[in-house]
């Protein structure tokens, strides 16, 4: 870590400003200018861990869909690329492929986090001879292959890209890609935690207000235990994320710990959403309630850059093959 750590009061203040900022951004809108006005670059440089976690937690809480995550990954990729000709976006591997970029000799296949308004070029990671290369494609060349991702998360601005790949290659950058994925996973873990916290707040408020059998349903143990379990899951996810940041300075960008953080947050969202939906009854199942938006958003975030089930499988395989667990507390 470089700069000075943010203290609690400053963090709280920043959280408030971020909430205001996020409340005013339209779906798929640009966060960049508003963050610039807030002096975000400086905050980020001072304390990347707190700043990133804060931004993406609030992003999750507000259920905003934007390309903010692109900046996190591009910060790791840019040094490996020729200077940018304008503003850049990133094409993520399709969730079905985890964090593995599609083969360079096959068609384009991935997701964009939002429409390409105002974007000049798109960084398209691809796999060539077992290594990740970073191809830069003009946004106009990609536009034809992309369309809004249909279905599951109706509030997201994701675009699926599938189509013929424009010719050309780019520099091999496997290390940069590994670091970018690690950074992306930490941010996604924070975002899922934010969605969970907001769902838990909704469920807590609903069960405290709603009276059945002459008392708030939150007074029934079956209900409060579910909420307490959900809280445990979120707290554990946050702990693993904090631990992951202590490893972020490592050579691989703390990849192993970042995967663990995303795995834990992914498990937490599954548990929190199951409990939150159950305690809200039919009210939470109807689209009149906000809850379903949390359910689908959390599941979509879980799927990006490796879902929790796939991450658990690969982590299990790695552990059995003798991988070291990152020491959480250095004495």
């Amino acid at each position: 870590m470089t700069g000075t750590a943010l203290d609690a009061a400053t963090t709280e203040l920043l959280a408030g400003s971020l909430r205001e900022l996020l409340a005013s951004v339209s779906a798929g809108g640009e966060l960049g200018p508003a963050l610039d006005a807030l002096g975000w670059a400086e905050v980020l440089a001072d304390d990347p861990a707190t700043a990133t976690t804060l931004l993406f937690t609030e992003h999750g809480r507000a259920l905003v869909s934007s390309r903010a995550l692109d900046d996190v990954l591009l910060a790791e990729l840019d040094p490996a690329l020729p200077p940018a000709a304008g503003s850049r976006a990133l094409l993520y591997p399709h969730p079905a492929e985890g964090a593995d970029p599609a083969p360079l000799d096959g068609p384009l296949w991935g997701v964009l986090l939002g429409p390409l308004h105002g974007v000049d070029e798109v960084v398209v990671p691809a796999t060539a001879e077992g290594r990740t290369v970073l191809v830069t494609v003009a946004a106009t060349d990609l536009a034809a292959a992309g369309g809004p991702a249909t279905g599951f998360d109706l509030g997201s601005t994701w675009h699926t890209v599938a189509g013929p790949r424009p010719p050309g290659s780019g520099p091999p950058a496997p290390e940069a890609w590994t670091r970018a994925v690690a950074a992306g996973r930490r941010a996604l873990a924070a975002e899922m935690i934010g969605v969970c916290e907001s769902a838990l707040t909704l469920a807590t408020a609903h069960t405290t207000d709603r009276v059945q059998y002459g008392r708030p349903i939150a007074s029934f143990q079956a209900v409060r235990h579910r909420l307490a379990e959900a809280y445990v899951a979120v707290t554990a996810a946050r702990a693993v994320l904090d631990a992951a940041w202590t490893a972020a300075g490592g050579a691989d960008g703390g990849g192993w710990a970042a995967a663990a953080a995303k795995l834990q947050a992914g498990r937490a969202q599954a548990q929190v959403m199951r409990h939150a939906v159950q305690v809200c009854g039919a009210m939470g199942l109807s689209q009149e309630s906000e809850l379903h938006r949390h359910v689908t958003r959390a599941a979509a975030l879980d799927a990006l850059l490796g879902g929790h089930m796939a991450l658990a499988e690969s982590a299990g395989a790695a552990l059995l093959a003798g991988a070291d667990v990152h020491p959480v507390v250095e004495l």
């Binding site: 969730p95 079905a96 249909t150 279905g151 599951f152 979509a300 879902g307 796939a310």
Partner: peptide, 20 residues
């Protein structure tokens, strides 16, 4: 668990996304 993220993001594959 079997179909994984193909349940969230439609890949057009039969019997995958349809579970959503």
């Amino acid at each position: 668990e079997i179909v994984g993220p193909r349940l969230i993001a439609d890949t057009g594959e039969w019997g995958a996304y349809s579970w959503n």
